[in-house]
Design a protein around this nucleic acid. Structure first.
Lengths: 251, 251
DNA sequence: CTGGCAACCGGATCATTGATCCAGTGCTCG
DNA sequence: CGAGCACTGGATCAATGATCCGGTTGCCAG
């Protein structure tokens, strides 16, 4: 506990790195992260152990702890690293929808390409890659004319929608879950009396098209954002969400 | 008479009668699940171990494995159980938006009430409570006039949106993460050059209102669904979502 | 009554895993 | 040359999920 890692109980990103990492020793954070991604891609989330990771790197498992404080750090670094692959569109205030659509689609693509990432979404994402893309999202919406509270609401909706969508799809398309999916659909049909609609429709049907469904939802959100933006910029005060949606609150 | 079996500790009279020590009924799946929920609510996801759970139930940890095959089973059962608290609205084809809004809001409320549930969302949810509510969602949309591919898209969007929203909010409002949230916001401000927009806006700002943002997104989705439903029922062929084709449903 | 069977319980025990202790090894700088 | 720093890893710990196997209890047929 007496190492340089002492100090703030914050997130990896908020802590200064263990070492400025000027030169690259044989083992480095980057190599660890790269190998972790490879391992996760090949074997899945539950197969990632410090020992196995070290073995693949040709080192002892203990060594990893010099470069990284905990396994959680590895996961945080790994999760952020994959988002480097999401290209940040060029800012274009003429067509903000195109930029946002590209960003969100890329975001989704990365999550689906690394299905293990879905299980990690429940942790603070404060890595530089994620933040840069969040910044772009907010900046683009701001540039498009969104003002509070619509700005936050728009960014919130879009990012949470991708996250939820990717999480669900990854849940059901992970190799081993394919059998579960089929079994579930059979189960619906066998209990057609209890689940009449699910028996014939639903995201688990064989012919369900995740991509199309995703695009519909994204379009609806963008339509709503666009309408709200122009309404509030054209006319009067920003009125809250119009419908009686807020009428329900338990507890 | 009066001979005791070998191995029994002490005399009959000194031993408590068979099941008097335990007032609760014999261990059952339900009791396990109830206690697991209580434990999770009180101490969080990572504190749930079979041993601790057994201890709270006054049994040996091994005993649990007679009622439940694995710890994952406990988690699956637990996750489904909390959704019993989500009231299923009365079917009302006159105002399908109200029913769906109530269901989705209740869904969200439960997830936020049990923040540990967010971490479990990445697993197939096939419990009876979840299925009953999914069935309602699909049935209501179908009754409202939604047809494929809009039906699946609508259900997909709505449920994934709640899931993503609850996951994110739970991530950032869990007690111990509050400090992280504040630190993150400070970090944005300290790096205002890199994150100009996040420094002043963003879901991590102290005054951010999750509830309002959530309601905006939900309204946008419902608006889009409604527009798409009536367009396809009034007019002709359902055209797929193109990023901008449907964008003037409102204007 | 009685023997037996099936439901149910739990102590001992295993393998795995995250993490730490501490004894090194090599390299650079004075 | 030698002191100190960056870095490595074998031994080891404690926690945990899970299983083995030997109890115990209630009940029911004979």
């Amino acid at each position: 506990m007496g190492t340089k890692h002492s100090g703030s109980p914050g997130d990896v990103w908020l802590r200064p790195p263990a070492r400025a990492a000027r030169e690259a020793p044989p083992l480095s954070r980057d190599r660890i992260v790269d190998e972790a991604i490879a391992l996760l891609d090949e074997e899945g989330a539950d197969r990632l152990t410090m020992r196995r990771l070290a073995e693949r790197l040709g080192t002892g498992s203990t060594t990893l702890y010099w470069h990284v404080k905990t396994k959680n750090d590895v996961l945080d670094l790994t999760l952020d690293a994959i988002f480097a692959a999401v290209e940040i569109p060029r800012a274009d205030s003429q067509d903000w929808r195109a930029g946002i659509t590209a960003l969100i689609s890329g975001w989704r693509a990365v999550l689906l390409e690394h299905p293990w990432s879905a299980a990690l979404l429940g942790r603070p994402m404060l890595g530089p890659h994620v933040l840069a893309r969040s910044e772009f999202l907010y900046a683009t919406l701001l540039d498009a004319g969104a003002t509070e509270p619509h700005l936050t609401a728009a960014a919130y909706s879009l990012s949470n929608y991708v996250i939820g969508s990717a999480l669900m799809q990854a849940t059901w398309t992970a190799g081993e879950e394919q059998a579960t999916r089929a079994a579930a659909q059979d189960y619906f049909r066998a209990n057609r009396d209890r689940y009449p609609v699910l028996a014939t429709h639903g995201p688990l049907a064989e012919d369900s098209d995740w991509e199309t469904s995703f695009t519909f939802g994204l379009t609806w959100l963008l339509d709503g954002i666009q309408a709200t933006i122009s309404a509030s910029s054209a006319g009067g005060a920003a009125n809250g969400p119009s419908t009686k949606a807020a009428s329900h609150a338990r507890q």
